[in-house]
């Protein structure tokens, strides 16, 4: 539809021709400036994500896998989708227990095992690229090892986050990680709590399409 393209752009340019616009300057300080310490950011992140039903556990760096197995047992989860190739996933794979949950990898295209993923996977484990204190959001850039649906289809999603990986605001995360210069991945996500809806008479219900539970393990 190049005709439509030409016509639309022509109309827009003609409209502006007789009235050049000079928009006011954009002052980003209101979404940028926060002088929170690392401890404050951690505190704030935890408050915000738990306020939307996210679950947070602060654990020692060398104990998190044990903690994960205990949580899974308590929740009655029998299998876990985890990458054997990421640093987070590898730890889970190497410290697997005989009596613990069965691990499986997302190692073939979704088209090959859609019903299996949709119906038989209890939980998934992923890392993240940091978090945002202000809104209690996790930053995920799905990868070949940890594809998009890992954080979406299984009913429970475990995420491992370093306590020192928390940015104050979304603006700071974008700027400090240099998203625009890096080039965006095919998919980037902010995840803030489990899937929810209030479409029936404004009553909150969780797990409508995505995970019912979001569990964040913060490594200290």
């Amino acid at each position: 539809m190049t005709a439509a393209r030409t016509a639309i752009l022509q109309r827009l340019r003609a409209g502006r021709g007789n009235q050049p616009l000079s928009p006011p300057a954009s002052d980003f300080s209101v979404v940028r400036d926060r002088d929170w310490t690392t401890a404050e950011k951690l505190e704030r992140f935890e408050t915000m994500i738990t306020s939307v039903n996210g679950e947070v556990h602060r654990v020692a760096e060398d104990r998190w896998v044990d903690h994960l197995w205990a949580l899974m047992a308590a929740k009655g989860l029998t299998n876990l989708l985890a990458s054997p190739e990421t640093s987070v996933g590898r730890e889970a794979w190497t410290r697997q227990r005989e009596s613990g949950p069965r691990l499986r990898a997302y190692d073939s295209p979704i088209d090959d095992w859609k019903p299996e993923l949709f119906n038989n996977v209890d939980a998934a484990l992923t890392g993240c690229r940091g978090a945002i204190a202000e809104t209690g959001s996790l930053i995920l850039w799905p990868t070949v090892q940890e594809p998009r649906l890992m954080s979406l289809v299984p009913p429970v999603h475990f995420v491992v986050l370093g306590a020192d990986q928390i940015y104050a605001t979304f603006y700071q995360a974008l700027a400090e990680q240099g998203w625009a210069d890096l080039g965006m991945p095919a998919n980037a996500l902010l995840i803030s709590g489990p899937s929810k809806t209030a479409d029936i008479e404004q009553t909150l219900a969780y797990g409508v399409h995505g995970p019912r539970e979001l569990v964040v393990l913060i490594l200290e």
Binding site: V144, A186, L189, G210
Partner: peptide, 15 residues
């Protein structure tokens, strides 16, 4: 809401 549960940023098809 301070933010929605998901902010989904799409910049291309499956690689």
């Amino acid at each position: 809401q301070h933010v929605t549960t998901y902010v989904n940023m799409i910049s291309g098809p499956r690689k």
